[in-house]
């Protein structure tokens, strides 16, 4: 097992998946991809990522449900969740954070800022949400 930090990217849009995979690999992360909520939960069980980049509008299980399921399992408490969504309303952000996401990033975003956010949540002791 490498010492790289593990990022699971969950989104049903192949273009963003490709771009983010490239970005995080180049930035020194270990990256895996999931195309819907169900796949994401399997990866979480099998791979135990350090952080999950989670889209909301997806088939099978949406991002909120994935988030809620993960947070219902105490053994996954250390895993960080960053929601990444085109839904940018106050109600959606509030719901995401209430369901246990550590950060909520609205699309479109700057790749550099996204990297900084991931870096921040993975700092030891960065428990607080934003």
């Amino acid at each position: 097992m490498s010492g790289l930090r593990k990022v699971l990217i969950v989104d049903d849009e192949p273009n963003i998946l490709m771009a983010l995979e490239f970005l995080f690999k180049r930035s020194g992360y270990d990256v895996r991809l999931a195309r819907d909520g169900g796949e994401a939960l399997k990866e979480v069980d099998a791979w135990r990522p350090d952080v999950m980049l989670l889209d909301i509008m997806m088939p099978v299980k949406n991002g909120y449900e994935v988030c809620q399921t993960v947070r219902e399992r105490p053994e996954l408490a250390a895993m960080k969740i960053v929601m990444l969504s085109a839904k940018g309303g106050e109600a959606e952000i509030s719901k995401g954070l209430s369901l246990g996401a550590d950060r909520y990033v609205t699309k479109p975003f700057s790749t550099q800022e996204l990297l900084a956010t991931i870096d921040q949540v993975l700092q030891p002791g960065a428990a607080g949400r934003q």
């Binding site: 809620q68 309303g89 109600a91 959606e92 509030s94 719901k95």
Partner: peptide, 8 residues
């Protein structure tokens, strides 16, 4: 309502 709902 531009609203959201969930179970807690």
């Amino acid at each position: 309502h531009g609203s959201e709902a969930w179970l807690q």
